[in-house]
Design a protein around this nucleic acid. Structure first.
Lengths: 222, 222
DNA sequence: ACCTGAACACCGTTCAAGT
DNA sequence: ACCTGAACACCGTTCAAGT
């Protein structure tokens, strides 16, 4: 018995595009671990086996989602200075993580030599080379910046996961969880964030600007 | 029919400790995705169901491994200066990732309020507070440093994964994969690393020192 | 050309039964 | 107290059969 597609939407033909978009929605709403071939097929009004006509397997599905996610990151503008370009792409990546919480993990684990990723890397490296860095240093700077951008999102999501609440709740929880006097430095920091909530965007910019300052000094020196 | 334990080792009684150690060995040798309850049980000469007498489930197993991994990171020495202490813990973490390739991912996804993790955080924060940072800034600095330390390992492992070879091979591959003239900046950087291999440790220290410089300036200013 | 139905080889986990 | 055997509810994937 064919499952009817939901509600009154006209039954559209399946396509790779539709499968990938549905997978992104499912991952957005229910988390990446809820994304199974069977669940995804159900949402599309189809059996799991049918998906294999449009993606070659789950790996290919995740790869396609990764590609679409990367495409959502702003490419650094050609005209702006390198610092503004790097800052914009960092902030744009953070926006992406907000819309698609699974994106950081998937880009980490699934990024391959897809055209979208190569084009993105080329644009970033071109900006750094034009700024005056040698090719070897430009590559290292790219690696360092991405380490921080993706690493911060991972750390942030860990801290936020402890409970569904904001950073004040997390700090409160940490403060409550530890025995009085057991971890004084940790307790002191937790107390500070209980009074004054941690600003995730400002906290990100704090480290990013340290790195950008370091690059700027490098350019002035050499 | 009971599976005999392998070779001529005397059959030791199972324990949480032995289960965790065997899980770490298995993950070291065959990768974290090869770690299944059934496979682990087989290595211990036991059925999968028996493991549940010593760990409450796979989550608990991964959590226990994470805890043991964190315990392998050197705690910053009490006597050394803050910069030396932060540098040493960063390098110690990189050594851990070399011994246990799964550690970075697991610490990212599984770290919780375990005593080992809390003790570690307390020690790091104490060092930063003594150096003269306010509690709120110390927390932010901790977050920024860990973002970079764990983020670098993730990026590094992605680049190294393309092939089993070293960075020169990766650069060669990237150079070969792209059509001539398609991604000129990327090609230029790839060419540079084909001539002169990328030094992963130096590349890590490059970004780490930028952050430490930033913290140092912060301390001097405030 | 695309979807279904049924199967396969795998998971993590539970639980009564053994010792 | 600890291990086994067998089952359960899930996975991703394959493939002959339908249309």
């Amino acid at each position: 018995m064919p499952r009817r597609s939901r509600s009154d939407e006209p039954r559209q033909p399946l396509s790779r595009e539709r499968v990938l978009r549905a997978a992104m929605s499912l991952a957005d709403e229910r988390g990446i671990e809820a994304l199974t071939m069977r669940e995804l097929a159900g949402r599309l009004g189809v059996e799991a086996a049918s998906l294999y006509n449009h993606v070659s397997g789950k790996d290919d599905l995740l790869l396609g989602m990764t590609d679409l996610a990367i495409a959502e990151i702003d490419l650094p503008s050609e005209s702006a200075g390198w610092r503004e370009a790097m800052r914009r792409r960092a902030m744009s990546a953070r926006g992406l993580f907000g819309r698609h919480p699974w994106a950081a993990v998937l880009i980490d684990t699934r990024m391959q030599g897809e055209p979208t990723a190569l084009a993105y890397a080329d644009r970033v490296l071109r900006t750094l080379l034009r700024a005056g860095l040698s090719p070897a240093v430009a590559g290292n700077v790219f690696l360092v910046l991405d380490s921080y951008i993706y690493g911060y999102e991972r750390q942030r999501s860990i801290l936020a996961r402890d409970d569904g609440g904001d950073s004040t709740d997390t700090a409160q929880d940490v403060g409550d969880a530890i025995a009085p006097g057991a971890f004084p430095a940790l307790a002191q920091v937790a107390a500070a964030y209980t009074e004054q909530p941690f600003d995730e965007d400002a906290g990100f910019a704090f480290g990013l600007d340290m790195l950008l300052d370091g690059i700027e000094r490098l350019l002035r020196a050499g």
